[in-house]
Design a protein around this nucleic acid. Structure first.
Length: 495
RNA sequence: GCUCGUAUAGUGUAGUGGCCCAUCAUAAAGGACUCUCAUUCCUUUGACCCGGGUUCAAAUCCCGGUACGAGCACCA
């Protein structure tokens, strides 16, 4: 084949033309945006805890599209549930910072659903007045039977007057939680059971379960459910594109039915599938919270946790996270990715800037014999002489090396060739013996290498060469991997 | 059970009827460079879920099957 090609290229090159290799599209898929329009995106988490790794996808994809199209990114807190997934007050402060860290710029606008209850009430009332919503007094179980039987519940045929009356009873506390709910009239014979007369607003016991925001507290008893709140708010904020998980596909269908009632047009919607990281099983905010409270993890910033804070502790760069999510794209496939993919993005960013250090695990002392210099200079970074040198003192001529390296002849990196007993054999590199990292007794201190494994933080004691890098500095421990300096040792990031 | 969605190398991803014996990344293996098992560079390995159909032509369109995932909450 190659032979034929070479003949062709010399005899009839034109036949090979037009056979250019196909190229891979860069970045995110093209978005449908009308000419001259400024698209509006939103990222809408429940502030019931800090952001997780998975949330980062929503931030990065929406934020990147917004930046590419000179559009707007709204950060919206969908904090309408005080019982099942109650918001956490600190998350209101934290999440905007995490978004800013991830994107390198803050969200353009922040909206709190709990501040906008009056808007949702207005739309609920309009729904009742126009007859496409009704106050349903069936229990959840009773309604489930109607839904399964594709039959109308009796409340469906109430007059506007009766519905308004029911609505007032919801507002004034006559109805207690569980007594009534506002439903959107769709069609009980719809093929998809999820869409049949879905609930839009319900009652919550905010006296016993007040909203955690002091300014909201027990003010409202009637609260919108996500599908209703989100649909109305998207409209009010002028959202043009919704990009979210495909688990919300039925939500889109419900909301589209509501939009049709109101005479609105639903935003362009794009979905992504489920992502699992090999090394992390399924962490949910609630299971993480439980493990933190029981002391399994030190906090939301534990380096073993798949939270934004955990990634920060672990030295993962925001840019690496962005590149990672953009590379995964927005396909609807359910995927499982290894952490190595994220680490390779991180390595690309940190390697050029990470000073080199020697760390010796499980150290053994070797007393050098023979001619030894008083001190040695090593470059801080092999590719960047401008980063300067580190000077190692060899008075006395005692070095520490890893026990595992001490079995054979070896070369102390950038220093001397040594035999098993510490006799210096050559200053220059004389043969192919292994090159190992080392520290000198006087220019090193005891330290700990902390390795974040799934279940434990493995602590390996050793010695690190003396340095004065501040906490938070990312270094490369030669022959070990990249690590970040913490208050109590060197946290291994990845190889 | 009902409804919806997805299926390309080990893992991700490009590809919307002919430039496809299929792109790129990552992983693995080998090599070059390097006084790190790092970085950089080179090479190799490796895929269109199965079965029909439409067409001159299918990874791409249609039908069926299978697998996986999601929704059917007075959670988000």
């Amino acid at each position: 084949m190659g032979h034929i090609e070479s003949i062709l290229s010399s005899e009839a090159a034109h036949l090979l033309e037009g056979r250019k290799k196909q190229e891979k599209r860069e970045g995110l898929p093209q978005l449908k945006v009308p000419d001259g329009a400024k698209p509006v995106f939103r990222f809408a988490p429940n502030p019931n805890g800090p952001l997780s790794f998975g949330h980062a996808r929503g931030v990065v994809i929406n934020g990147t599209y917004a930046a590419e199209h000179n559009g707007t990114l709204i950060l919206r807190f969908d904090d309408t549930d005080t019982t099942v997934k109650p918001p956490s007050l600190s998350a209101y402060e934290l999440i905007p910072k995490e978004v800013e860290w991830l994107l390198g710029r803050p969200a353009d606008r922040i909206v709190l659903a709990s501040d906008r209850i009056q808007h949702y009430y207005e739309h609920a009332e309009k729904m009742l007045t126009k007859g496409f919503g009704y106050v349903c007094e069936c229990t959840a179980e009773t309604f489930r039977e109607f839904r399964e039987a594709k039959s109308n519940c009796p409340c469906r045929s109430k007059s506007v007057e009766q519905n308004k009356n029911g609505w007032n009873k919801m507002l004034d506390g006559t109805f207690k939680p569980g007594d009534a709910v506002v439903r959107v009239k769709t069609d009980m014979t719809l093929k998809n059971p999820a869409l049949r007369d879905w609930p839009a607003l319900r009652l919550q016991d905010t006296l016993n379960n007040p909203h955690p925001r002091p300014s909201i507290g027990s003010t409202y008893k009637v609260w919108p459910l996500l599908d209703f709140q989100s649909a109305v708010e998207d409209r009010l904020q002028g959202v043009t594109h919704i990009i979210r998980g495909k688990d919300l596909m039925d939500s889109t269908r419900k909301q589209t039915l509501l939009y049709e009632h109101f005479g609105w047009t639903y935003p362009e919607t794009i979905y992504w599938g489920r992502v699992k990281v090999h090394e992390w099983g399924g962490f949910s905010t609630s299971t993480m919270r439980a493990s933190i409270e029981s002391g399994v993890y030190s906090g939301w910033d534990d380096p073993r946790l798949p939270t934004i804070q955990g990634m920060q502790t672990r030295g993962i760069q925001a840019e690496a996270l962005r590149n990672f999510w953009i590379e995964l794209g927005v396909t609807q496939k359910d995927i499982s990715v290894p952490l190595a993919t994220l680490f390779s993005h991180n390595t690309k960013i940190i390697d050029e800037k990470a000073p080199r250090l020697s760390f010796v695990r499980d150290p053994v002392e070797i007393h050098l014999s023979g001619d030894v210099q008083n001190d040695v200079e090593l470059p801080r970074h092999p590719n960047h002489p401008d980063m300067g040198v580190r000077t190692i003192s060899l008075a006395p001529p005692t070095v520490m090396i890893e026990a595992a390296d001490s079995k054979t002849k070896y070369r102390l990196k950038e220093f001397v060739d040594v035999d098993e007993l510490g006799a210096v054999e050559s200053i220059e590199r004389s043969d192919k013996r292994p090159i190992i990292q080392w520290v000198s007794l006087t220019s090193s201190v005891e330290s700990t290498l902390i390795v974040p494994l799934q279940e434990e933080l493995k602590r390996i004691s050793g010695r690190v060469e003396t340095n004065n890098f501040p906490i938070g500095t990312i270094v490369q421990l030669e022959r070990i991997g990249y690590a970040i300096i913490t208050g109590d040792g060197y946290l291994l990031m990845h190889e």
